[in-house]
Structures are given as C-alpha cells and as structure tokens.
Amino acid sequence: MRFIRYALPAARNFAPALGGFSRSAWSGLETEIDRLFETAVGGATAATRFPVDLYEDKANTFVRAELPGVKRADINVDLVDGVLNITAARKTPPAAEGQAEQTVTLSRSVRIADEVQADNVAATYENGVLTVTLPKRQEAKPKKFTVEVK
C-alpha cells in the first residue's frame, strides 16, 4: 500500500503564522503528522528499522533489539559519543535457483546516558534477539551511606 500525501496549497506554506484566515489552525499539526508518517512508514526507513527496548538495573543499562534471521557475524555494535549504533545485515537465501542472495541492511541508533564504561560493553544474541549490556560507571551508581546516630 502506498501513501499519497495531499499537496498543500502553496499559499498556505507562505502564510504568516498569525495572519488572516488562510492558515488553518491545524496546519502545524498536519505537518507534524506528515513528518511522523514519513518516519514511521516512509519507504526504506520502515524496512530497515527494528524494535528496540531499553532497560536498566543498578549496575547496567541494557538494550534489547529484535533482529530475527541475522547471523552473529553480521551484527555490528559500536558506541560513539554516547550513541549506540546497531547495524546488521540480513541475508536471505535466494528464493529460486539462479537468483542472487538478498541482503538487507538494518540499522538503529540509540542515545545512551553518558555514564557508561565504554570498554566493558558486552552483547549476546539468542533466539533472534540481541542484548547489549552497558555497565554504568562507578560514580554513576547510587551510593549509600549509613550515618551512625550518636
């Protein structure tokens, strides 16, 4: 199914924000909705996106990504400037003989809080789900001090 977007009258695009009746009260929302649709269903974006979950416990932050049908060797995880990038290549065997192998590149970036020990990041892949464990830095862990009352 294809989405056909309405072509807005050009006049509306140039109308001043607060002037006259030419600008619909909803126009801001319309653009916002259009933008959302574009990111959610727009062509290549939707096909190469995969769902991601974020968890944390006392010592770690966890990122879980659903990546079915990808070999471990084809998954790339890197952490650059507090952004975790997950890139994976899904190789589908040819449907019929004589056809080439199909490769789809999937990628997703997740912003992670800064307090991560970047050199201790670990990742496991099981049943088509990738789990990345990002240990928190010592100073980021909540410290508990018990004060003795005299």
Binding site: P51, V52, D53, L54, D57, K58, R64
Partner: peptide, 13 residues
C-alpha cells in the same frame, strides 16, 4: 522474561 531488578525505560516490543 524481564529478569528481576530490571526496570524498563523504553519499550517498543
């Protein structure tokens, strides 16, 4: 299943 002690911050699944 979500292990004990894990808090979900953001879910898509």
């Amino acid at each position: 299943k979500t292990p004990e002690g894990w808090t979900s911050l953001y879910r898509e699944t």
